[in-house]
Amino acid sequence: MTARLRLVDPSGAISDADLVEASYRRPERFGELYDRYIGEIHAYLGRRLGQEAADDLAAEVFLTAFRKRTTFDRERGEVRPWLYGIAANLIAVHRRTETRKLAALRRSAAAPAGTDHGHEERVVSRVDAANEQARLAAELQALSDGDRDVLLLSALGELSHGEVAEALGIPYGTVGSRLSRVRRKLRAALGGVNPLLGGSDG
């Protein structure tokens, strides 16, 4: 408990973890973390839940983090995955928004507007791409909540395996096994119909 009280010289570029600790005494220091991460947290929420929900919820992530700041333990990880973990918890209570978004994507991708003109070839490749997007959206929608969280923290949040484990509070090994299983499914969905489009390894 008291180990958290060590404060660090605020001159120079203060680390995220030091900012959290500095905010114990001076709450306004927490605002600097907002400035550092609001962009990517909003982007992550927006990619998953859509702009409207992201606009509503992004600040909520930081308010929650601020209220729980004394429970942040720098020895157990970094501030960034901690914030993503809080975002993941918020997303969990908005699952239906995410499901609706994916369902809408699936439908709109599967039925592209036919008003565009162009070479036959380009139309075909556009339809292929649209089909591919529809399959991908369907695949994402079909994933279990836990699998989707792991995949999207990795693919969209660009968290490392270790950071995903921290954010979700699950074992490191579980992250690896879930990811490889999920990515196999995605690649099958993407490359299954036209293998020529697939191939590159992430």
């Binding site: 609001i38 962009g39 909003h42 982007a43 992550y44 927006g46 990619r47 998953r48 859509g50 702009q51 992201a54 606009d55 992004a58 994507l105 991708a109 591919e132 997007q133 991908l136 959206a137 994402l140 995949l151 999207l152 990795s154 693919a155 969209l156 990515r183 995605l186 690649r187 993407l190 489009l197 697939g198 590159s200 390894d201 992430g202």
Partner: peptide
């Protein structure tokens, strides 16, 4: 296509307006 890139393209990030920030 790379699966991660495909996911990112399927789910683009919306802009963060200065007002919301």
């Amino acid at each position: 296509m790379d699966d991660y890139r495909a996911v990112r393209e399927l789910l683009p990030a919306p802009p963060l307006s200065p007002e919301v920030r």
